[in-house]
Design a binder for these strands. Structure first.
Ligand SMILES: [Mn+2]
Ligand SMILES: [Mn+2]
Ligand SMILES: [Mn+2]
Ligand SMILES: [Mn+2]
Lengths: 222, 222
DNA sequence: AATAAAAATTAGCCATGTCTAATTTTTATC
DNA sequence: GATAAAAATTAGACATGGCTAATTTTTATT
């Protein structure tokens, strides 16, 4: 019952997509997320259904079986632990680690994740602020809420990002925003839901709605 | 010009096989080494020849071009660096690391090997006693010679193994032989070239010719 | 209910990397 | 030099995981 790289990527995609919306995942959504065609998605879902990793065809949409979720969490755990190693031990930066971890997450060995976990000192979050599933598969609550859901005029602290793409992270680097940075939403522009945000108590910049929905914060001030 | 996993495994196999015999590698030899059929080997060699990583068809046998050798050394470097990380940082044992490194060696990132190298303190040899190519691709000489080439009655020290399979390494573990262990060949049996070997100055055991050809030693005594 | 748009599905094709079963060289051996 | 064995090659097939181009089904919109 060994899983191919493609199978693992599908399981992970379904896992992440059903986390957000809490719903069954449609073919179209999966296709967009994996940058594959709907036809390809359907044939893979059939394969995963046959392997009893995915429930499908019942209604519209796919969801993970217990076994599928277990497999997905295992991949996510490996992905995030490798990211910690890459960042903390090998000195890679925020925007470099994700793509390497995409490859490392598919390395198979029954004890690998646990050894990494121990070596790294059982980290709770990866460098993007995402929770690392523990050895039993329990995932702690994401700390923080979306910047788009925050109140105007309150001091906020960045605790994570929702988007780990190097495109987004390079943008943040340019703005000198990282985990721990201070933000304050000064104004929301009604016209397009963009905002003026003060960074680290110095410069104020204009950012898009999409930006606001990609940053996780906690409020730390008045 | 990105390489597939299969392509990389062929390059590595040609590299190792032509190291030993210093000759061009035959289809049959490659097929045996990769556990593929001769037909498969031929079609892959065509592909690699088209990519100018392999010279073929000139005479009997394949060899690496300059570019092919560079690629192969890069893979070997990654393999051995990962083995050091697995053994020294993640506490995996001798016989576990090779199979994991077989997967890790295919992870692509321009700086990964160098970061690993630095983090590990620029190790010269992997846990099996094999030299790690440096950043420029230079490979230091294997220290030691084969146990089968040693003189009878001289104290020897194990500095490496020629066979990194878990099968062989588990056998060594059972015999309590590791790098640094002391050996002495007491007798060679003419009949089948097997030998009586004293281990760590205590028990003597009988080992096959194949065994003698799988251990690297230096002489340390009279 | 009729119709249009969106989503899902089917059918057929393709590249990669394998394989088996001939067949053709090449190399040894008498 | 003839002949047998070994090695290389060809031919054709198959599994995987993609794709495009219909077609069918479902969902919305008047
Ligand atoms: Mn992946
Ligand atoms: Mn991450
Ligand atoms: Mn490999
Ligand atoms: Mn090794």
């Amino acid at each position: 019952m060994t899983r191919t790289l493609s199978e693992e990527n599908y399981l992970k995609a379904i896992f992440h997509l059903s986390r957000n919306s809490k719903e069954k995942v449609s073919i179209t959504t999966l296709a967009a997320s994996l940058e594959n065609t709907a036809a390809s998605v359907i044939s893979m879902l059939r394969k995963l259904t046959a392997k009893e990793l995915v429930d499908y065809d019942k209604q519209k949409g796919a969801s993970l079986t217990r076994a599928g979720e277990k497999a997905a969490i295992d991949i996510v755990r490996k992905h995030r632990l490798w990211e910690v190693l890459l960042a903390e031990k090998l000195e890679f930066s925020w925007e470099e680690i994700h793509d390497i971890a995409e490859q490392l997450e598919h390395v198979h060995h029954p004890e690998l994740a646990d050894r990494l976990d121990k070596f790294l000192g059982f980290p709770q979050f990866d460098p993007h602020g995402h929770p690392i599933p523990d050895i039993k598969g329990n995932i702690s609550q994401v700390s923080g809420k979306l910047l788009s859901d925050s109140t105007i005029g309150i001091e906020l602290e960045v605790v994570g990002v929702k988007d780990s793409s190097s495109m987004f992270l390079n943008y943040l680097k340019q703005l000198d925003i990282k985990i721990g940075s201070k933000l304050m939403v000064e104004q929301i522009i009604e016209f397009d839901q963009s905002a003026i945000v003060k960074i680290n108590n110095s410069s104020s910049i204009s950012v898009s709605r999409k930006f606001l929905e990609s940053i996780l914060i906690i409020s730390t001030g008045s």
